[in-house]
């Protein structure tokens, strides 16, 4: 306040000139020196691969040529991708996979966190059990689920048959219509504990006195949740959703191990498709172009993530 008032009363010509960026850097040179090693490492392991991927996306790499003999094709790879039927199919799969996995895992995790926030006998044991899917190896989990879903002898199908829900073994992962939802179920199973842990951490920050005051004022359980708990969890919820979305966009292990993107590309998402293009088919240029597009999308998500984090910090600072 003092500063503002002071500025308002000061003569116009006496406003001090804002130092240039270089001046600011020089003033804070010690800080820059401290972060220099990290910046150098990042330039080597992040900036160069990004540059190389962008460069490679403008070249063609036929199977009979080495990568160094690549042929410049301008934006042909991008044109080919955007006009390809497979691209749109894989994109739709990726959107369904990311949205469904993220939202359902978040809702389940949120519910589990609220339930486990209450005090009851066996809470610690239940919490430990619910975390298991998250700590188990994704590779091992994928193989286990693949066998449980097995279209001829899978235990899930056998149970459904035994209990009379169906008269023949259901086809989960060998069918173009059911494969993606089946994989999403596995992904949700693996990810909801992460959301649960994040929300449980967030619940620790909800002021107990506010909840007590609301109870004294006669607020119902729902009203206390909606008007006190929920607003306090908004920041951590946003961060959790963004982290889940980024992880799901980059998901590889579950679809690759369980189906390899099949049958008939029905479970290919961007990452598995990029992997197949690069390592299975050596279309390094096309795979690079896909990666650049994915990079742009993830950068946008990253921007919102940083904004959400900044928002949280401001809220906490206030």
């Amino acid at each position: 306040m003092t500063t503002l008032a002071g500025h308002a009363n000061a003569p116009r010509g006496s406003i001090p000139a804002r130092p240039s960026i270089l001046q600011q850097m020089w003033t804070s040179r010690a800080d820059y020196l401290y972060v220099l090693p990290a910046i150098v490492v990042m330039l080597i392991v992040i900036a160069y691969p990004i540059y190389y991927t962008i460069e490679l996306s403008f070249f063609k790499t036929p199977p009979g040529l080495q990568l160094r003999d690549k042929i410049f094709v301008g934006a042909d790879n991008y044109t080919a991708i955007l006009s390809s039927e497979v691209f749109w199919r894989v994109t739709i799969n990726t959107v369904i996979w990311t949205l469904a996995s993220t939202l359902i895992a978040f809702v389940l995790g949120y519910g589990a966190a609220l339930a486990l926030h209450r005090d009851f006998a066996g809470r610690a044991v239940l919490r430990a059990i619910l975390i298991i899917p998250w700590v188990i190896s994704a590779v091992a989990a994928s193989y286990i689920w693949k066998w449980m879903y097995h279209s001829d002898f899978g235990i899930i199908g056998q149970v459904l048959v035994q209990f009379g829900f169906t008269d023949r073994q259901p086809n989960f992962i060998d069918n173009v219509h059911t494969v993606l939802p089946s994989l999403i179920v596995v992904n949700i199973w693996r990810e909801f504990p992460f959301a649960m842990i994040m929300i449980m951490a967030g619940l620790q920050t909800v002021p107990e006195q506010l909840l007590r005051a609301a109870r004294v004022d006669g607020a119902s359980t729902w009203q206390r949740f909606w008007h006190v708990t929920f607003p306090h969890l908004r920041g951590v919820s946003t961060v959790t959703i963004l982290l889940l979305a980024v992880a799901n966009f980059n998901s590889f292990i579950i679809p690759w191990i369980m189906t390899g993107g099949g049958p008939s590309n029905a479970s290919h998402i961007w990452i598995t498709h990029i992997y197949e293009l690069a390592f299975g088919r050596q279309r390094w240029g096309v795979a690079a172009a896909y990666s650049v597009l994915l990079f742009v999308i993830l950068m946008a998500l990253g921007y919102f993530y940083v904004r959400a984090l900044s928002g949280n910090e401001k809220e906490q600072g206030a």
Binding site: P63, G64, G262
Partner: peptide
Amino acid sequence: LPETPEIMNIIIPDMLQNALTGAM
């Protein structure tokens, strides 16, 4: 041919899967 691995490991299985799943 240099293209044989892609033909045998990707294109042939894709053809089979496209026909077996009814996608084509």
